[in-house]
Design a protein around this nucleic acid. Structure first.
Lengths: 334, 334
DNA sequence: CTGAAAGCGCTAACAC
DNA sequence: GTGTTAGCGCTTTCAG
């Protein structure tokens, strides 16, 4: 099937291409009869406007760039779902860029983004933002950062207050007299790890204590599980807070394998809930984080920025829910 | 920063735009000194070619469309990672479309794909291909289908032989005299469910038996877990084969909760391995499916099709590995 | 209400 | 080697 252009539609309907253009774009200055003729021609020929040509003429692509770390994390998938659903509503397309640490050069991705002339960029930020993204700012490309709270003239951000979540959780445990709280580093997510640590630090400080139990996973270890299996003392007691489901499950497995009971000896809380937490036994208590909304809200914000609407709130903090399950002792927290 | 065009670069370097174009595209007929001047101008002005204009002029967008069901499945994420990595190598961009059953109208997605004038489409097919995709064929858009073995003039496919996997697995169990084999339906994936059923059917037939234990999950049930909790007899013995990790885990949980032991009473095999299978206790035996490769190979194939290269093998079957773990009795299969 | 024509930024003949 | 020019398919003034 040959690609049919606006010219052919015009000829078929016996009007000028300007009129066809008007019909496509819903301009209401077209006479009903003419519109009908054009629409018939469009259907007859199976005409679909060429978005590229439209992009050139309009100087906008109705496309946004999305930059995420590897797509195989469940919560990233949920973010993408949210983003995608909202993008569909506003008729925006998404150009997806995944960046794999070690493999991808973020500079190249940014370059690609600029070349593709997207109308905006949404980026999930799991570590401190690379300087190359500064370039996007210079180009004045509207940008939404997911996962960390920064903003500027052309940047909005949507994030979750992990610091507060951890803070409140720790505070509640400290109030109960439990001081054995370990934060497990998530090497794949600097930003969240830092926030978690900070939340704990403050909670301890407020309680006149000092937070010292940040469990850094050495670069050499292949997984949290393998590392913990060696390092977790069989006599360990207390609460573990981990960011990802797989880390929480690793702790759970190691604890059980070392003869510790959950939640009696060790308690576990996962910061980013997924269905897998409910599948673990005992089920893992977790914060239900609005991943889908992170994507959805970001995209909604993006449309506003692209329309030049004034955004009153440039840093948007999303709420969360604490879901107590079986890996923690009964007692409402947060 | 104002968007700088090829004209401004030309002026800055005091050459014609044709020369700039040549430099950008690495044409080697440009004198070294001239090239240098142009490159300096490009750097000075921070010029980035406008991919949209290039697309219009060249009649190709160096972009492919990717259509997947919800992105929050781990294996879909892996596919995307593979696709994305290879796309990067060949300098292709990916426009991502997620289709959510009930929410997304596949017709609209196809329309969007056509409008965006992508050079090719890669689609993950978890149910019988909708007729609207026929349109893509009519438009002669190169297409790679992941997950099912169909091909035509403009369609290639990359898939995994789930039927064989299940067949061999069943055959091996039947040989041991175990006939209590249940295939659990994956309502989110018609195609694989059918293949699995077919594989079992054939294996049973070859053994002079009849396969009858296909466990359909009623539309009403919220999850495999909830359904099984009611329906799994406490006396059940035998092997369960499930497609997704979450289903396998559901079976595992229900079995344990009903006092059955694994693998003594019930054995479990998951068709599509993810890290979560190794985190379950007992660890779940599974087929390690090449999800990443599914994406990578598809993209590679796509580049060939887009280059008009002859593709010798239009239906590409990827191999897999059986990973025995603790949810099955010791004994090599497959 | 509709048509003519000038771009949008770039590529690719075709000249010189 | 390098410049000139005609599109690529569409939108949008500006006339009529």
């Amino acid at each position: 099937m040959k690609r049919v252009t606006i010219y052919e539609v015009a000829k078929e309907a016996d009007v000028s291409l300007a009129t066809v253009s008007r019909v496509i774009n819903g301009s209401n200055v077209v006479k009903e009869a003419t519109r009908k003729r054009v629409e018939d021609a469009i259907n007859k020929l199976g005409y679909r406007p060429n978005a590229i040509a439209q992009g050139l003429a309009l100087q906008r692509s109705t496309t946004i760039g999305l930059i995420v770390p590897e797509a195989s994390f469940v919560y990233i998938g949920q973010i993408i779902n949210g983003l995608s659903d909202v993008a569909k509503i506003y008729d925006y397309n998404i150009i997806l860029h995944t960046v794999t640490e070690g493999i991808t050069n973020i500079r190249e991705v940014v370059d690609e983004v600029i070349k593709s002339r997207v109308d905006g960029v949404i980026i999930y930020c799991d570590r401190k933002l690379d300087d190359s993204t500064k370039l996007l700012e210079e180009y004045n490309i509207p940008m939404v950062v997911m996962g960390t709270d920064i903003s500027s003239d052309s940047i909005c951000s949507v994030f979750i207050d992990y610091e507060r979540a951890v803070h409140d959780l720790c505070a509640s445990y400290l109030k109960k007299g439990i001081k054995d709280i370990t934060i497990v580093e998530d090497r794949r997510n600097d930003v969240i790890s830092e926030e978690m640590k900070e939340g704990a630090r403050k909670a301890f400080e407020e309680a006149g204590e000092k937070f010292e139990s940040y469990l850094a996973i050495p670069k050499g270890s292949r997984s949290t599980y393998k590392y913990l299996r060696k390092s977790l003392k069989k006599s360990h007691k207390g609460l573990f807070i981990a960011n990802r489901d797989s880390q929480a499950m690793a702790i759970l497995n190691v604890a059980k394998e070392n003869g510790l009971s959950i939640p009696e000896d060790v308690e576990i809380v996962c910061m980013t809930d997924t269905k897998y937490n409910s599948m673990a036994r005992p089920e893992i208590s977790a914060f239900i984080m609005p991943s889908y909304d992170l994507g959805a809200v970001s995209m909604r914000l993006m449309t506003k920025m692209m329309n030049g609407e004034e955004v009153e709130e440039k840093e948007k903090c999303l709420g969360f829910l604490y879901q107590e399950r079986k890996s923690t002792k009964k007692e409402a927290v947060v």
